[in-house]
Computed example of a mutant assay.
Amino acid sequence: MDQAWIVPDWEAPATVGAAVSTRHGPGVSLPPYDRLNLGLRSGDDPARVTENRAALATGLRLPAAPLWLRQVHGTDVADAASVPGSDDEPVADAAIARGPGRVLAILTADCLPVLFASDDGQTIGAAHAGWRGLAAGVLENTVARMGVPPDSLFAWLGPAIGGPSYEVGAEVRAAFVERDPAAEAAFTPTRPGHWTCDLYTLARRRLAAAGVERISGGGFDTFRDPRFYSYRREGAASGRFASLIWTRAD
């Protein structure tokens, strides 16, 4: 049977739930978006995406509607407490929440989703780390906005394009190496002016520098794994899958 969800293998408290959707979940999107496309701005029929989002919430037994974001490859962090309603989608690439019954969601199709939980289970975070946001500090901003000691956090690196599948140019390499020369270890030369780029290595370096010590996950490759949407593999007709984290209701 196709796997509908992936549950992170990490040491987050029992009061915190997390899951990653796959395209094989209980959705109604038609080819080429089949089946559980969750991206409203992916070119799919919005009515089908809305139905998919409802099926996601039911399938995972979420305690509330997810806070969806209008992601722009930036570094802004939304606080769920300041968003007027669940139908609002703030322009941000990360979000945080405190207290029971909160759900955060990040949409990706090759970029790196990162989930965060405090060790007391009271504060959660989620970030969308494409190379631009990762280089500009979206992970550091998320850690800072959570308002707890960084060494009290758990971080989990979700499905993203794998290093061997992700060739980039000099602009991407420079964005990391000019700030952190040791980040060169995440880049492997392929042809003149091009390198493969390991987002997982870069994210681990950034998180460790920010004081986050308990980092798990990684090891996926959305480009090669058909369970996931991949913009680099499918182009403009790619859907989006979601990485979600929530605090269980009282």
Rank of each mutant, 00 (worst) to 15 (best):
T58V: 15
G59D: 08
L62E: 01
P63C: 03
P63N: 03
P63F: 07
A64L: 04
A64C: 02
A65P: 01
P66F: 10
P66S: 07
L67R: 01
W68P: 00
W68D: 09
L69M: 02
L69K: 00
R70W: 12
H73V: 03
H73L: 12
A78C: 06
A78E: 04
A78H: 05
V83W: 11
V83E: 09
P84N: 12
G85K: 13
S86N: 03
S86V: 14
E89S: 13
E89T: 14
E89A: 15
E89W: 14
P90M: 11
P90K: 13
A92V: 07
A92G: 02
D93C: 09
D93Y: 05
A95N: 05
A95P: 01
I96E: 00
A97E: 05
A97K: 05
A97F: 11
G99Q: 08
G99A: 13
P100T: 01
V103D: 05
V103C: 09
L104F: 02
L104G: 08
L104N: 07
L104C: 07
I106D: 02
I106L: 07
L107N: 01
T108V: 15
T108A: 10
A109C: 13
C111H: 08
L112T: 06
L112V: 11
P113D: 02
V114G: 09
V114R: 09
L115I: 06
L115C: 08
F116I: 08
F116C: 06
A117S: 15
A117I: 11
A117L: 07
A117Y: 00
S118F: 07
G121V: 04
G121C: 07
G121T: 03
G121I: 02
Q122R: 15
G125T: 04
A127V: 07
H128L: 14
A129E: 10
A129D: 04
A129H: 04
G130M: 04
G130V: 11
G130A: 15
W131K: 02
R132D: 06
G133Y: 11
G133C: 08
L134E: 06
L134Y: 03
A136Y: 05
G137W: 10
E140S: 15
N141Q: 15
T142K: 05
V143Y: 09
V143T: 06
A144L: 13
R145E: 14
S152A: 12
L153W: 06
L153I: 09
F154L: 12
F154T: 07
F154M: 09
A155S: 08
A155F: 12
G158A: 14
G158V: 01
G158C: 14
P159T: 10
P159I: 04
P159W: 10
G162A: 10
G162T: 09
G163H: 10
G163C: 06
S165H: 12
Y166T: 05
E167M: 05
V168N: 03
